[in-house]
């Protein structure tokens, strides 16, 4: 009998409020008018599951339903990876200009700065992982699709050189749509510039951990992202050189769903590890520890 009562009550509570009736408390009357605040809920782009943004945040922006690793901006990545308060940014003043006077580029740059709150598609600097000092570059897809122009290439080259000079392990988190075509040949040359800098860094015996995150394509995939001593990707990350559509047009075939995913690349020998976001910091710390030159310091 008590059970019946309870059930009835529950049923009643889920009924939509009767708007025509004058009765009922104020709160129930207001409910239909109240809008869901922007950003309260989040829909997974992969499985469509709707979840509280706060829950998602707590889960490091990994879908609580399907495990899809959502994109992070540079700030979120840094907070998640480096010891709290350890990050010191470098070269924040290095920004893109419009060397070709390319139609629409200057305006788009200003727009991207506003949209992302960043000065460029990469944030570089120094910090620590479990007390171990590191040099890092973290790309941000929300600035110009993470594309690499002269400024991105310069900042990455500078942090590589800095890591070489001070004997720091280097971690680069990549995410990019590729080279920034509004800078044409100058952006292509950033591939050579960053790769050459990594050549020098390798010569000095520096450790470079490359972390590939969703998505990493074109000129970034085909330069520093694939030159790590150890190459790690987050699960379900898309990465490769040419885009899926271009390839489908070339070979006139539909590509499998998993084409260019981290798992696909792992299977084809292009990766050392696929690491879940929750375990990323631990893994990076562990690998750095195994390359530590403590005895010499």
């Amino acid at each position: 009998m008590f059970k019946d009562l309870f059930q009835k009550k529950r049923k009643y509570a889920t009924l939509p409020p009767d708007r025509s009736a004058g009765g009922g408390d104020a709160e129930t009357q207001q409910r239909p008018k109240r809008e869901i605040p922007e950003g309260l809920m989040n829909k997974c782009s992969k499985c469509g599951a709707i979840q509280y943004s706060k829950e998602l945040e707590k889960n490091l922006k990994v879908c609580t339903s399907c495990g899809h690793h959502m994109r992070l901006n540079a700030g979120e990545r840094i907070a998640m990876t480096l010891d709290e308060g350890s990050f010191v940014e470098h070269d924040n003043d290095v920004v893109s200009i419009d060397p070709l006077q390319f139609p629409g580029y200057a305006g788009k740059l200003a727009e991207q700065k506003l949209k992302s709150g960043l000065n460029e598609a990469v944030v570089t600097g120094e910090g620590a992982i479990n007390g171990q000092p590191v040099a890092v570059a973290v790309m941000s897809f929300d600035f110009f699709s993470g594309s690499m122009g002269s400024a991105v290439g310069e900042k990455i080259t500078r942090i590589i050189e800095h890591a070489g000079e001070y004997g720091l392990p280097l971690i680069i988190f990549s995410t990019s749509g590729g080279a920034r075509m509004q800078e044409s040949i100058l952006s292509l040359m950033q591939m050579a510039k960053t790769s050459a800098a990594l050549g020098q860094f390798a010569e000095k015996g520096g450790l470079y951990l490359s972390v590939i995150t969703d998505p990493t394509m074109g000129g970034v995939s085909a330069s520093f992202a694939m030159l790590g001593d150890i190459i790690i990707a987050e699960p379900s990350t898309t990465f490769g050189f040419a885009g899926r559509l271009v390839i489908e047009q070339t070979i006139r075939q539909k590509l499998p769903d998993d084409f260019q995913t981290a798992e696909f690349n792992m299977q084809h020998g292009q990766l050392d590890l696929v690491v879940h976001r929750k375990e990323m910091k631990t893994m990076l710390g562990k690998l750095i520890g195994m390359h530590s030159k403590k005895e010499e310091l």
């Binding site: 924040n92 003043d93 290095v94 060397p99 700065k113 122009g149 050579a192 050459a196 800098a197």
Partner: peptide, 15 residues
């Protein structure tokens, strides 16, 4: 190393 054109000046406040 010299390739590319960019600006660098005093740090900007917004990042």
């Amino acid at each position: 190393r010299r390739m590319g054109q960019y600006a660098s000046g005093p740090a900007l406040p917004n990042s």
